[in-house]
């Protein structure tokens, strides 16, 4: 059965949940389509569900766990009347208002919701390496979740691929278990923030493989090593590791909006005048429209902006 709602929020990371808190407090009774449970960042709560301690979210002097922070956000939104639907959005029809939204638990028949306004907060997900057998070896040495799997690599030698903050965080975290953590990076310098770099460089268990990319995974039922290619000389070498954690960057979750909302060349949604998209009545916030800052606090900030923009737009449409 199709339900009408004033505001549908798609996504439930810091951006979506902040938009939910604000629109709920404005009595707009938002429905948050929060996603489906998974072990990737594409899940209710988003990327923070796979992190451990967050040290830089203002207000938490001693830090807070990612999942705990997201569960607080959600409870706060619920307290003001936001409603949650655990499903993924499979299709949006923005050709008419109200907009029609289909969800993964309803099939292709009637739309699940008709929404006067939509806030898109679907975030971004980790990019995989794209080498042979990578997916097959998830759970057998290849991991997308250091906090879930680090424990199993106690006493072993492992590698983290990437040069950003998340790669440094994962590598540092993983030294709690592993005897040695190799950071494999395709350039000769890191793009991680100074504090994260310093922490990784000072850790005696961490070593760096510069100008290197993973071209092959070695092993039968479980990972035994990787083949690295030097990005300058093209020379190949083997590195014996039983675990490989991939943290090479992100891509936005925008597949459902292709051809509907203006996007940049990397498929991030383009916003203008605050959080407005190319379709009137659809707003975007968080990592789905930001590949520069990508912080919990900036996502939350833009979620607040989207909520205020939506509220004002709904008022102007009703007044006019």
């Amino acid at each position: 059965m199709t339900r009408h709602t004033r505001v549908a929020i798609i996504g439930s990371g810091p951006a979506g949940l902040t938009a939910a808190i604000y629109t709920a407090r404005a009595n707009l009774n938002p429905i948050v389509i929060e996603g489906e449970i998974s072990s990737t960042s594409d899940q209710p709560g988003g990327q923070l569900m796979l992190t451990t301690e967050i040290e830089n979210f203002p207000g938490f002097i001693n830090g807070i766990d990612g999942p705990e922070l997201m569960s607080n956000f959600r409870a706060q939104a619920e307290r003001f009347g936001a409603e949650f639907h655990t499903a993924k959005v499979t299709r949006v029809d923005a050709s008419n208002r109200p907009f029609a939204i289909w969800t993964s638990d309803q099939g292709d028949g009637d739309a699940s919701y008709l929404a006067d306004a939509i806030i898109v907060a679907t975030g971004a997900r980790s990019i995989m390496l794209g080498v042979d057998r990578e997916i097959e070896l998830i759970g057998h040495g290849v991991s997308t979740c250091a906090t879930c799997d680090g424990f199993f690599f106690r006493g072993q030698e492992i590698a983290v691929v990437g040069g950003g903050d998340s790669a440094m965080e994962e590598a540092t975290f993983l030294t709690k278990f592993a005897t040695k953590v190799h950071i494999i990076h395709r350039r000769s310098e890191l793009r991680a923030s100074k504090i994260m770099q310093d922490r990784a460089r000072a850790n005696p268990k961490i070593s760096f493989s510069w100008n290197s990319r993973v071209v092959e995974l070695i092993g039968g039922d479980a990972l035994e090593g990787v083949v690295l290619e030097d990005t300058v000389t093209g020379e190949r070498s083997k590195l014996g590791v039983t675990g490989l954690f991939v943290a090479i960057g992100h891509e936005p979750n925008t597949a459902v909006f292709e051809g509907m909302l203006d996007m940049d060349s990397a498929k991030y949604i383009v916003t203008h005048d605050g959080t407005r998209t190319s379709v009137e009545g659809i707003f975007a916030c968080g990592d789905v429209q930001d590949h520069i800052y990508r912080q919990a606090i900036t996502a939350a900030g833009s979620g607040c902006m989207a909520a205020l923009d939506t509220e004002r737009w709904l008022e102007s449409v009703h007044a006019g």
Binding site: E36, I37, S38, S39, T40, Q43, T86, I138, G139, H140, G141, S143, C145, C148, D149, F151, F152, F153, A222, G243
Partner: peptide, 23 residues
């Protein structure tokens, strides 16, 4: 080597293995 892992045992034999959370 990864959790959650779910293994279904039928009469003591593993018949299905699922790695990762799902709905």
């Amino acid at each position: 080597m990864s959790i959650p892992t779910l293994i279904l045992f039928k009469k003591g034999e593993p018949v299905l293995r699922l790695v990762g959370a799902r709905s």
